[in-house]
Computed example of a mutant assay.
Amino acid sequence: MRLDLDAKSFGTRPVLGPLTLSVARGERVAILGPSGIGKSTLLRILAGLDAEYRGRLDGADRLAVVFQEPVLLPWRDAVANIAIPTGCDAATARDWLAQVGLAGHEAKVPRQLSLGQQRRLALARAFAAGPDILLMDEPFASLDAETAARMLALTDALLARTGAGLVLVTHDPREAEALHARPLHLAGQPARLQND
């Protein structure tokens, strides 16, 4: 996947300036910067969710996104929350639930799960899609330190096992380090990428 961005604005307000970002399967990158700098905007462009920019996005990579909130189907059980969006069968969904430590929770709907469990379910759903590159938008926000550390270790292990690449948006350089992701900083007005 390669993005050659000329500019991204919201109305008359420039948010992102010229930048180039390429990520391949197996490569891990973390986009760091303060709140409001444009990290999530950049991720939405990479995900194909925002087409209102000047530039070019190339690549036929299979992508999966883990958002800041789990974004689950509230009326469906855990198995269906994986199977419906990804198209995988129930056995594959159960296998991914087991891999993220949710065996025994297959029949529960999201409101019956803790926030940490909901985030594990969202992570299982993303990996069940078989992505070449996983896009993560501050997925460990609002988790206590112990739960966040467990989620980071789990994500690192799943990335290693599947060989998927990673683009992580975070304000915390320790998350980038825990996931062995090359840090890139968004800075300036409009924001541009800088190597650490």
Rank of each mutant, 00 (worst) to 15 (best):
M1L: 13
R2I: 06
L5A: 12
K8L: 15
K8F: 10
P18G: 15
L19N: 01
T20N: 13
S22F: 05
I31A: 09
G38H: 10
G38L: 14
K39Q: 05
K39V: 02
T41E: 10
L43S: 06
R44C: 06
R44M: 12
I45K: 03
L46E: 06
L46W: 01
A51N: 10
E52Y: 00
R54I: 01
G55P: 05
R56P: 06
G59V: 03
A60S: 14
R62F: 07
L63Y: 02
A64V: 05
V65T: 11
V65G: 08
V66T: 06
L73M: 14
P74E: 11
R76A: 15
D77K: 05
A78W: 06
A83P: 08
I84Q: 11
A90S: 13
A91M: 11
R94T: 06
G101L: 08
G101P: 07
A103D: 08
G104K: 11
H105I: 00
E106K: 08
V109E: 12
V109Y: 05
S114F: 02
L115D: 03
G116N: 07
G116Q: 09
Q117C: 09
A122F: 05
A124D: 07
F127S: 05
G130P: 08
G130T: 02
G130M: 11
A141N: 03
T147Q: 13
M151R: 01
A160V: 01
G163W: 00
L168K: 06
T170M: 12
H171Q: 13
H171D: 04
P173H: 05
P173N: 07
R174Y: 00
E175A: 11
E177F: 04
E177N: 05
A178K: 07
L179P: 04
P183W: 06
A187C: 10
A187M: 10
R192T: 11
N195L: 14
D196N: 15
D196E: 15
